[in-house]
Simulated assay, not measured.
Amino acid sequence: MSHFKLGFIINPIAGIGGSVALKGSDGMAMHALALGAKPKANERAKQALEVLEPYMDKLTVYTVNDQMGQDCAKSLGFCTELVYEVKTEQTAADDTEYAVKALLEKQVDIILFAGGDGTARNIANIVSDNDKGLNQVPVLGIPAGCKIHSGVYAITPKAAGRVVEMMINKELVSLAEGDVMDIDESLFRQGVVKAKRYGEMQIPSELRYVQAVKSGGKESDELVLQDISANIIEEMADEEETLFIIGSGSTTAFLMAELDLANTLLGVDLVYQHELQASDVTEAELWQAIKEHDGPCKLVITLIGGQGHIFGRGNQQLSPRVIRAVLAQESGRDNIAIIATKTKLSALNNRALVSDTGDSELDQELSGYMAITTGYKDQVLYPVASPA
């Protein structure tokens, strides 16, 4: 079997703003660190590479020094070759772009990268502008950012590893063009989602493992959303001592509007006895609120349209320890209320919902069928997949 050349890049600060409610990392790394955020990109990249450990003797990892790839690959015992070296402690977008140029020169079999939509844009800048006939190198993202709108990412880190595994084993993997999308983070932090297409890259389009582009736009069926909200509001009235943790998204925003409460469209809010207790909380603030609350806690979340993620996309404040704390209470999985219209579920084309918390054991616990509230006193059972 021919030796496989794996291009590997990590944006070490990708997603660092998520747990501290900054809703992005572009230009916010130092602020996020000051708020207590912990970098997660290397952990997620490691999950992808672990899938490839049985193939160590069949591949070489072409990468960047330190936290941009080499440390992660070498920690698992992979043979590495440096193609670019970062000279400063704080990495920048330019470092990603220089690394991609170097990987194209090496004619790697695939560029596997860990980051968010900003990282995808940096890579697309080089791949799309490449004039040396090498632009057919496929690219695949390991989801590590706060926002993943682009269609160039695997659904989970392990899924990214599975796709590369298929390529190493010369299994039939189709290629397709994946859209590179990103949003204006300054507007994003004000609760305005304005996505824009920045190009496309060739990706291995194994549908079991690669996510779709996030669907945009607000729910159009207002009557259905009213019915869903009425159901949740009735539950709130029956559970007076419960602290309700309201996740991000337009569906949950409609619920908050029906409660006549201010809402953080792209953040997490706390509601107790029909009153807003806290807005746009960080992971640490949410954890503290759960510990201090003398009573049950319940999550109210929705799914990302077109993708199906319920955890791990735009709601990193709902960390594994937060979710476990909610699950550990008396009603278990019933403490997670998922709300969505049947139209939104139908748009998934029978694909399962995805939990990508970063904790594989927790994702496994959450797999199986969960009840989705789709109207007033109307629920459907829908599968949550164990990530690949």
Rank of each mutant, 00 (worst) to 15 (best):
D109Y: 14
I111G: 03
A73C: 07
Y55E: 04
Y55N: 10
A93C: 02
A102K: 15
A92F: 01
M68V: 11
I110F: 06
V83G: 09
S75I: 01
E97N: 04
K38H: 14
E53N: 05
A92E: 09
L82R: 08
C72Q: 03
Y62S: 08
V86C: 12
A102W: 03
G69N: 09
N42F: 00
E43A: 14
P39C: 13
V100T: 14
G69F: 03
R44H: 12
P39S: 13
A102P: 07
G69T: 10
E85Q: 13
Q70T: 06
Q67H: 12
L35P: 03
Q90A: 09
D71Q: 13
S75C: 06
N42W: 02
F78D: 04
K38I: 07
D95G: 06
I111F: 09
I111W: 11
E53P: 00
G36Q: 14
L104H: 04
T60F: 05
E85G: 01
D109C: 08
K74H: 08
Q90T: 12
K74F: 01
L103I: 04
Q90R: 10
V108Q: 13
I110R: 00
E89C: 13
L76Y: 04
A48F: 10
A45N: 07
P39T: 12
Q107N: 10
V61M: 07
E53F: 01
E105Q: 14
T60N: 10
M56E: 06
Y62I: 01
K38N: 12
D57K: 14
C79S: 11
Q70G: 02
M56P: 00
A73E: 08
A102Q: 13
L52I: 11
N42V: 00
D57C: 05
